[in-house]
């Protein structure tokens, strides 16, 4: 009990004390423990090594491990903050924290900017947005002519790229999403409010004395 993780939990590289994680995030200790139940299930779905690899992440997302998806890859890379090719429990909780309904709006804006800045240059460039649109069309089997794609890009950059330099910087992005709040909808997961109800088994595996914290 208390703050010393059991041998079972030490099998999880990157396992962190739920009390510490709760103090750094919008989650309560119980919610962090419920997230551990979800983490255990995802991280053992292909290789039971206590870490989530890309295949396991895609399997959890699509229920199909063969589906390659630009956006799922991008989300995985942003969760994998230490760039180890795997997500440990600490990474998982801290990244999901951004999606909590109570997380600061600024964190959501930052995360979404990084998500769309595919090559990490600090700008969302037109060629990146085009690449994402083409990936979406491929995924959804939606048919749009190249001319329509260019029209969509023209319209988007006319609205978002205020200084018209052909790329969207962080400030332009923050202003653009404040005028189009629906763009941040994907950055909030209402599920995170009910995580202890979704994974009630955390109660039986809790290692914290007072789980009501």
């Amino acid at each position: 009990m208390g703050c010393f993780p059991s041998r079972a939990r030490r099998q999880y590289p990157g396992y962190e004390d739920p009390v510490v994680l709760a103090s750094q995030t919008a989650f309560s200790v119980s919610e962090v423990e419920a997230l551990f139940e979800l983490f255990k299930s995802i991280s053992s779905s292909v290789v039971d090594d206590g870490l989530i690899n890309k295949e396991e992440f895609q399997l959890a997302l699509f229920k199909n491990r063969k589906k390659e998806n630009l956006f799922a890859n991008r989300i995985f890379d942003l969760f994998d903050v230490k760039q180890k090719g795997v997500i440990d429990f600490g990474d998982f909780v801290r990244a999901l924290n951004v999606f909590h309904p109570n997380a600061p709006q600024e964190d959501k804006v930052d995360f979404s900017f990084k998500l769309y800045d595919l090559d990490g240059t600090g700008f969302i460039e037109r060629k990146e947005v085009k690449q994402m649109l083409i990936a979406l069309l491929y995924e959804s089997e939606m048919r749009l002519s190249d001319e329509t794609v260019e029209l969509i890009l023209d319209k988007t950059f006319l609205e978002a790229d205020v200084n018209q330099d052909g790329k969207i910087d962080k400030t332009e992005w923050a202003n653009f999403v404040s005028r189009n709040p629906s763009l941040l909808k994907i950055m909030t997961l209402p599920y995170l409010r009910d995580i202890t109800t979704t994974f009630p088994s955390f109660v039986f595996n809790s290692e914290v004395d007072d789980i009501a914290t």
Partner: peptide, 26 residues
């Protein structure tokens, strides 16, 4: 709205790969 009237990010945000809600579906 018709796709041509939507901005690119509205379209992109409909990707299944960006819908993390499915992680919580058992």
């Amino acid at each position: 709205a018709a796709p041509a009237l939507m901005n690119a990010f509205e379209l992109i945000s409909t990707s299944q790969g960006l819908n993390l809600g499915t992680l919580f579906e058992k």
